[in-house]
Design a protein around this nucleic acid. Structure first.
Lengths: 132, 132
DNA sequence: CCGTATCCAATTAGATACTG
DNA sequence: CAGTATCTAATTGGATACGG
């Protein structure tokens, strides 16, 4: 289960969820890990602009909350791989409508064909550079 | 349309949405206004713990982003009523799955009958005190 | 009643350098 | 490669008092 940061202090589910995804770069990390496994350096490149310190601390928090899995390979040079846990996959799914809202009403003015399912939260699920 | 705070700086829809709902009390304000019109003092009581200054500034930002409507009645004593715009209603709807995720996986461990629709983002839509 | 103004505290993130 | 350590900067929110 996820580590509850402020036990008993939540007013509703979103309040609680916001506590988990509240870091400045967290949803971008979630995005980067969607359906893929990444090494630290890869993530640093994908989430462009984030510093090592902040990326590391966000990853640690997401790990504590049960959202990402950290697999350490005892090799030299060292290798660590990050991926979403099942809970993280669920979270990413729950984020989808919000992402659709943001794309429709904040970013793009009127685009998106009406017939098309706009449930997706990612513009290009497996695009390499995250900066679109 | 919503005022874009960081024009062109978004990496994806969620990133953009987070910019709109990012304030500490914003989702609680959204919650309080769901399906209801509130005066300033009412909101202050509903969103318990928020200070006047922060509530006022969050309301102003939500207004700038086209999420809440502010209706001023030129009376004495002054009366101002806040409500959700259609865009705010949509946002609240998009927040629902995230709220369900938070309730299920952060707050309540295993509750929720499986057959029940867990789409709702609010525990008690028209409850008076927000602190549950 | 509905806010503003001011000042301060706390949290968060960035820059840079360094290590196993 | 995958981080940690420090130190600093910026942002955000809180307390309190006052104004139209």
């Amino acid at each position: 289960m996820a580590t509850v940061r402020r036990p008993g202090a939540y007013h509703c589910g979103i309040d609680a969820a916001m506590d988990v995804i509240g870091g400045k770069w967290k949803v971008l990390i979630l995005w980067a890990l969607d359906g893929r496994t990444c090494r630290f350096g890869e993530l640093r490149r994908l989430v462009s602009g984030v510093t090592e310190k902040v990326l590391a601390s966000h990853l640690r928090e997401l790990e504590e909350d049960g959202i990402v899995h950290r697999e350490v390979y005892d090799e030299v040079p060292p290798r660590v791989e990050y991926s979403l846990t099942p809970l993280g996959v669920l979270l990413n799914g729950a984020l989808a409508p919000l992402g659709a809202w943001g794309r429709e009403h904040v970013i793009g003015g009127a685009a998106e064909a009406p017939g098309e399912a706009v449930g997706g939260h990612f513009p290009i699920p497996s695009a390499r550079p995250l900066t679109m």
